[in-house]
Simulated scan of single mutants.
Amino acid sequence: MLRIHFTSHDLQNIRIARQPDPLWELICSVCRLETGQGPLDFGQWRRAAFDRLSRDSVAGRALRPLRGLIPASGYIPDFLTPPVTGGGLQECLDQVRRTPRTQLVHEMSRLAEARPVPNWTTTLDRPGSDTLKSLANALGIYFRALLEPYWPHIRTAVGNDVGLRSRTLLDGGTQALLEGLGPLARWNAPVLEVDYPTERDLHLEGRGLLLVPSYFCWRRPTALADPGLDPVLVYPVAKTPLTVVSGSDGGLERLLGRTRAAVLTAVADQSARTTSEVARAVGIALPSASYQIGVLRDGGLVASHRDGKYVLHAATALGIRLLGADAGRGELLPPRAGSLGR
Rank of each mutant, 00 (worst) to 15 (best):
D249F: 14
K133M: 13
L146Y: 02
P127M: 10
H313G: 02
P83S: 07
G257R: 14
L170M: 13
A62P: 02
E91K: 04
E331Y: 09
L202M: 10
S288L: 15
R98C: 08
G74W: 06
T168C: 09
V212N: 00
P227W: 09
F42A: 08
P82M: 03
D130L: 12
S57M: 12
L296V: 10
I27G: 00
V311C: 07
T81Q: 07
V158E: 00
E107P: 03
G43R: 05
L66Y: 00
V237A: 05
L93T: 01
G180N: 12
L33W: 07
A314S: 15
A157H: 06
S214C: 14
T240Y: 03
T243E: 15
G38A: 13
V295T: 14
V117E: 03
L139I: 09
L209W: 01
V244E: 04
R115W: 06
P197C: 05
L312E: 10
D41P: 00
S290K: 11
A17V: 01
F42W: 06
R186M: 08
G228W: 09
L26M: 13
L229F: 04
H5P: 00
G172I: 09
P71I: 02
P22C: 11
R200D: 09
A157P: 05
R200F: 03
S109R: 12
P335R: 01
L340E: 08
R97K: 12
T99N: 05
G251M: 13
D41G: 13
L301S: 04
E199P: 00
E34N: 09
G87S: 12
S304E: 10
S166L: 10
G159P: 03
W218Y: 15
I293L: 14
L177R: 00
S129F: 10
L204G: 05
I27V: 15
T275Q: 10
D51H: 15
A114H: 14
N119S: 14
G308R: 11
E199H: 13
Q95W: 02
G208H: 07
A325M: 11
P334R: 11
G338C: 13
L53W: 00
L229S: 07
T7G: 15
C31S: 13
W120E: 05
S57V: 15
V245T: 00
S248W: 02
G338F: 10
G299R: 14
A49W: 00
L80Q: 00
T121A: 06
P118H: 01
R342E: 15
L135Y: 02
S339M: 08
G257E: 11
D269F: 06
L229D: 03
G182I: 00
N13H: 15
